[in-house]
Design a protein around this nucleic acid. Structure first.
Length: 279
DNA sequence: CGCATATCCTGACTGC
DNA sequence: TGCAGTCAGGATATGC
């Protein structure tokens, strides 16, 4: 479900909601959600008593930096949600697998029907705050340091297709199926455009499209699709789905040229594009 | 190396 | 209304 924009919106909610708060108790009833840990006690032992210092994001991962320099890492995968509630007595949603209760009585709940998501504590204390488990992630799309030249250096040496490269988190971190399609459309490039044939002008368009699409999506609070899975920490849906040019618009006219948006299976994922605007 | 496929799960939706 | 089949925002392992 969530890609960079959705994860960034959740990060902002957590930054407002949990920084400075101290974990009083942890209930980890879903073993799969903490699968990198031996058991619930071991996971709880790493979190209880800790105060959240700040919340960062790396690609689609959330990093809750704790006061012992460890990091509580969260990935929502397809169906995960992190929900804040001030009232611990409020009924828990079905598939609530991990609950952190703060000393003030509020809670952070991890809800995840498909159980693909996970929470783990990384003991990493590297100087720059990097999490060793996430070392293979590519650069951040919205970092100023991620210039068109950086993007070109990561794309053009590879002999693959544009969408495969965009979905590969080692190329660039945070882009998933929705934004891969939207970025390719805005750049005027087909999903199956070969990365090794991208010209500097095409990479420049791709870079601009990437920044514009992701920025706009963050400003809209992310994309919430028909199943209503994605919501922020307060349970609110995003609105960027109304701005989608191609994703989930198969059979509808392209808003730019009027041709019919197509949907194909590519790289194992549903892929949407305009046959008139993308080459 | 690149690519397709299967896998981990539950739930929503489609068509009979 | 019930039920089988299909599909889903991600990441990873495997085999060609």
């Amino acid at each position: 479900m969530p890609e960079l924009p959705e994860v960034e919106v959740v990060r902002r909610g957590l930054a407002r909601g949990v920084v400075g708060r101290t974990v009083d108790a942890v209930e980890a009833t879903g073993a799969r959600s903490i699968r990198r840990h031996a058991d619930a006690d071991e996971f709880g032992g790493a979190v209880v008593g800790r105060t959240v210092r700040r919340v960062d994001r790396r690609g689609k991962y959330l990093l809750l930096r704790l006061d012992d320099d460890s990091v509580l890492v969260a990935h929502l995968r397809m169906s995960g949600q992190l929900i804040l509630t001030a009232d611990a007595t409020r009924p828990r949603a079905r598939h609530t697998h991990v609950v952190l209760t703060f000393t003030d009585g509020g809670q952070l709940r991890f809800v995840d029907p498909r159980t693909f998501g996970e929470l783990f504590v990384s003991a990493t204390r590297s100087r720059d705050g990097a999490v060793v488990e996430l070392a293979s992630l590519g650069p951040e799309p919205l970092d100023r340091a991620t210039t068109p030249a950086v993007l070109a250096a990561r794309l053009t040496p590879r002999r693959t297709r544009l969408k495969s490269a965009l979905l590969d988190q080692r190329t660039i971190a945070g882009i998933g199926n929705i934004y891969g399609d939207e970025i390719a459309f805005r750049a005027g490039l087909r999903h199956d455009h070969r990365t090794d044939s991208l010209t500097p002008a095409e990479v420049a368009r791709l870079h601009a499209a990437m920044v514009e699409v992701l920025d706009a999506a963050v400003r809209c609070g992310g994309s919430s699709l028909a199943d209503g899975q994605y919501v922020d920490v307060d349970g609110r849906a995003g609105t960027y789905q109304h701005e989608h040019a191609v994703f989930a618009r198969a059979g509808e006219p392209c808003l730019r040229c009027g041709r019919t948006i197509e949907r194909v299976r590519f790289a194992g994922r549903s892929t949407h594009f305009c046959p008139g605007c993308q080459h």
